[in-house]
């Protein structure tokens, strides 16, 4: 029997466009793999559509905002629909970059030193002194990024002190909290993790060499602007260490089915955790599909296995709802 899959794509985040492209790719592959697929946007029609379609499984391919902060998955649990990917509480943990960093650091991973600064704090303390203190502590270059969100939107690498204020202001255009983080020099890699049978397994790391040196939005979504090495050009021991670090991050954050963990590999081989993605990009230029191809996996077959894993009865849906209710009540 071919499962009926509802792919959720679009939404009303800054990453709507990327999400639609990812969603179409996933839907096409699943159709080729023999699934019946509908693609649904997240709007007032979603719940009626989900009730009418009654899919066997839902695959949220939503980037940003409700797609990654757990809330849409809360709704899926409420409706009792099995779905692909991480459950709501763990989504919240991964989505908030400072919380994710603290969690994986406790699990023993290296995390670049940084600080999360809410907009209101600058107002209360005065921006110049806060920025000065951050510069003193972390030095240049400094990475500035919104505490939530993906596709490098609002992200800058600040190389001159005079550019810091502007970078922070632009970051605030995307969210209320800015993360200022020490810039670690090294090799930029993304490690996707598959977790379909209870034991997370890292796919080959994909190494990113962006033409301008910055893997920004334009570099991410313009075919040809980035050279990828897949697998990454790392020695065996370093690649192994990186793979284990990604699996540990996936487990420490409580992620499910599939995730992508981004790192910088320092010159001494240390994998520095940057962030975790519960809804990794699935476009033509995205990293998870590249990692899967490098592992010799067929994407249609892989996505079908992901759907099957989401359908498996091992997953119960009650504990997390209770947990969320407790959080909401506290």
């Amino acid at each position: 029997m071919s499962p009926r899959v509802a792919v959720l794509a679009g939404g009303i985040s800054h990453e709507r466009d990327v999400s639609r492209r990812s969603g179409r790719r996933v839907a096409d592959a699943l159709r080729e793999a023999g699934c019946e697929v509908v693609v649904l946007d997240v709007d007032a029609g979603l719940i009626p559509s989900l009730r009418a379609e009654a899919p066997d499984v839902v695959w949220p391919v939503l980037h940003g905002a409700v797609g990654e902060d757990g809330s849409i998955r809360d709704v899926l649990e409420l409706l009792g629909l099995p779905y692909v990917g991480t459950r709501p509480t763990a989504c919240r943990r991964a989505w908030d970059k400072p919380v994710a960093a603290a969690t994986v650091e406790q699990a023993g991973l290296a995390v670049p030193p940084g600080i999360a600064l809410p907009h209101a704090l600058f107002r209360d303390l005065g921006a110049p002194v806060v920025l000065e203190a951050a510069l003193e502590r972390f030095g240049l270059p400094l990475v500035v990024k919104p505490s939530r969100g993906g596709s490098a939107l609002g992200m800058s690498i600040v190389r001159e002190a005079g550019d810091l204020a502007r970078a922070v202001v632009e970051c605030f255009a995307y969210g209320e909290t800015a993360v200022l983080q020490h810039f670690v020099a090294g090799t930029e890699v993304a490690v996707s993790v598959l977790d379909l049978d209870g034991s997370p397994r890292a796919l080959p790391a994909v190494e990113i060499v962006a033409d301008g040196g910055s893997y920004d939005y334009t570099a991410r979504y313009t075919a040809g602007a980035v050279e990828f090495f897949s697998p990454a050009r790392l020695d065996e021991a370093t690649a192994d260490r990186l793979a284990r670090a990604a699996e540990r991050a996936h487990e420490a954050l409580g992620l499910r089915h599939l995730s992508r963990i981004d790192f910088i590999v320092g010159e001494d081989g240390t994998p520095w955790f940057l962030e975790a993605n519960v809804a990794p990009g699935m476009t033509e230029t995205s990293l998870l599909p590249q990692g899967a191809v490098a592992a010799g996996l067929d994407l249609e077959d892989l996505y079908r296995r992901v759907v099957d894993a989401a359908l498996s009865p091992v997953v119960a849906g009650v504990a997390d709802v209770t947990e969320v209710a407790a959080v909401a009540a506290s």
Partner: peptide, 26 residues
């Protein structure tokens, strides 16, 4: 490169280790 990675995995080596450096711009 992928075939190499699969062979390495089958031999118990970590995925992606020690492969030839082949870049792609997609």
């Amino acid at each position: 490169a992928a075939a190499g990675a699969v062979a390495a995995a089958a031999a118990g080596a970590p995925l992606g280790a020690g492969r030839a450096a082949v870049g792609t711009r997609l």
